[in-house]
Design a protein around this nucleic acid. Structure first.
Lengths: 122, 122
DNA sequence: TCTATATTCAATCAAAAGGTTGATAAAGGA
DNA sequence: TCCTTTATCAACCTTTTGATTGAATATAGA
């Protein structure tokens, strides 16, 4: 697997992880400090096993890592992972202004700017 | 449904929408200008019906909106939606530094700072 | 050692997601 | 009007996801 695909895969897992409301709540909770499975399970009407799975999903996505404290395994956020997510979004957010200028050009019938992009299709 | 839940719901749909690699690729493509279903379907080994569904998901998430041009319905990004996503992430990203200070305090046995947060549980 | 606490593994299940094919609708152009 | 293009609707299928219950593992403490 090449570097590009690997980076895509990490994004996949990260966005996928945050797509669940329970996991997003876990992230919000962890932003105020580390917490164990028991801590995290309490606010939700789900079993601890389910929470444990959610943490594993967040962990595999690189958003969370865990330390060891006796039989407890407190989870905490990995700030770099969240930064990479905003970086991805910003990549496409920053260019939207110019793309709208291009849209306006198209609607005005001046499609030369766009066709330079369209040549790659078809 | 109250305001808080509604905002949560929008986040749900937005993250869920970006959790799919095809939809993320669509967003990337749209950042370079509006495109039709046919345009967007071409790079992928899936049917146009599938792409149409993906666009609808992005649309319901508020990330994309569509205009009308004869029988075509070109899609384009809604920049504000992406901004709201980064805003959510930043909310929890910014506090991580202080929460790590708190973690250090815990590991050092000075848990007074954390218990003030823990009182709300149990 | 025996027990309580914290967490995970395994098997199972219902619901949702992503995809397909086939039929339908809407708009322009020959 | 007929045909082509563009897009969507509808029904269906397969895989994945989120959750559950029950058993197992690991560690601390009496």
């Amino acid at each position: 697997m090449d570097v590009v695909t690997e980076a895509e895969d990490r994004l996949d897992r990260a966005f996928m992880a945050l797509a669940d409301p329970v996991r997003r709540a876990i992230v919000a909770r962890l932003s105020r400090g580390p917490a164990t499975v028991n801590d995290l399970a309490e606010p939700f009407a789900i079993t601890k096993q389910a929470v444990s799975k959610h943490i594993q999903v967040l962990e595999q996505a690189g958003l969370v890592s865990r330390s060891k404290d006796a039989q407890r395994r407190p989870a905490h956020l990995v700030p770099e992972a969240l930064e990479q997510l905003t970086a991805w979004i910003d990549t496409y957010r920053l260019t939207t202004e110019s793309s709208f200028r291009r849209l306006d050009a198209v609607l005005a019938g001046l499609d030369t700017d766009v066709t330079t992009h369209n040549t790659e299709r078809k």
